Computed example of a mutant assay.
Amino acid sequence: MKSIVIFNNKGGVGKTTLLCNIASYLKIRKGKRVIVIDADPQCNATTYMFPYSDIENIYKSGNTLFKIIKPLQRGKGYLKSDLPIITSPNFQVDVIPGDTQISLTEDFLSKDWLDGKTGDYRGLQTTLLFRDLLEKLNADYDYVFFDVGPSLGALNRSVLAASDFFIVPMSSDIFSLQALENISKSLNEWKFQLERGLEDYKAKEKEDFEINNKIIKWNLQFAGYITQQYTAKTINGKKQPVNAYEKIIRRIPSAIQKHLVANNIIQLRSNKLGEVPNLNSLIPLSQSSSAPIFNLKSENGVVGAHFNKVKEYDNTIKSIVSNLQLNID
């Protein structure tokens, strides 16, 4: 099983739309066992993948990600009851729904992180709550995707500390470039602090910190980037970004190499997984239908030239998924 976070410190880069469509493509087209964990307090992935009429019932049931965090807050350790998993009818992936209440856990996670990085058991247990969740999911899935917000706060730190890989979606603007340095600095600091905490725990307790009989270590690796949201023009039959975007796009590879690839242990087949041009009205159609873009049909409101756009996006996601699998499998 591979766990993957799609993350950028800058918001508005199309992260959730990309994640949900990659996850759904792996399920529908590739036949993989896939689950999405909505760890963004804005709950955008949950809202996207389920009809609006279902959302209220999801939250009334209490079967959300907050159910997993709540026992830790109450000092009862990791969740021992069934996980809150439901299936998206159109995306066809399993989902642990998000919950706005998880935004209230930042202080709790921050406090226990301070203890965890000094080797305290309770602090490490809290910090690694998502590693415990991944162990519970390990036998049932090929891929786990985490949707997270754009912050470098305690919640995202816990998700990234537990995961195997992260993907960076890049919009074609200067702020996405600047965010790369923030990500690199934060990940390097978190890795150092967690590893020191694990070493201190071992020194005090004379044993390694384990979850499900597995010794815990920092596993996170960069899996590639995707450029998004540029306006394309056609030159000699080939689509290219217009000049204003192209100037930024040309700077992305070197920034990625400097801030993210240089820290990797694994060697990637390609740092760039693909690029997604402007999709115009396909995104609102996809959102209103709670259906993946590559699988939109006439009953979802697709008409005329939209069909070609859907086909184009299908090919785009196919290529991105193929490159991702080459990098991490």
Rank of each mutant, 00 (worst) to 15 (best):
180 L>F: 04
183 I>N: 00
184 S>L: 04
185 K>Y: 08
187 L>E: 03
188 N>H: 09
188 N>C: 02
194 L>C: 08
195 E>W: 02
198 L>A: 05
198 L>D: 00
203 A>Q: 13
204 K>H: 11
204 K>P: 06
206 K>W: 00
207 E>Q: 14
209 F>Q: 08
212 N>R: 13
214 K>I: 03
215 I>G: 03
216 I>K: 07
216 I>C: 09
217 K>F: 02
219 N>E: 15
219 N>H: 13
220 L>K: 08
221 Q>H: 07
222 F>N: 07
223 A>N: 03
225 Y>Q: 08
225 Y>W: 01
225 Y>S: 01
231 T>W: 06
233 K>S: 12
234 T>Q: 10
236 N>Y: 11
238 K>I: 14
239 K>T: 06
240 Q>K: 13
244 A>V: 10
246 E>K: 13
247 K>S: 10
250 R>N: 14
251 R>A: 10
255 A>C: 05
259 H>I: 00
260 L>A: 05
263 N>S: 13
264 N>V: 10
264 N>T: 08
265 I>H: 06
266 I>R: 15
266 I>F: 08
267 Q>H: 06
271 N>P: 04
274 G>L: 05
275 E>G: 07
276 V>T: 08
278 N>H: 09
280 N>I: 09
280 N>S: 14
281 S>M: 12
284 P>K: 07
285 L>T: 10
286 S>I: 04
287 Q>K: 11
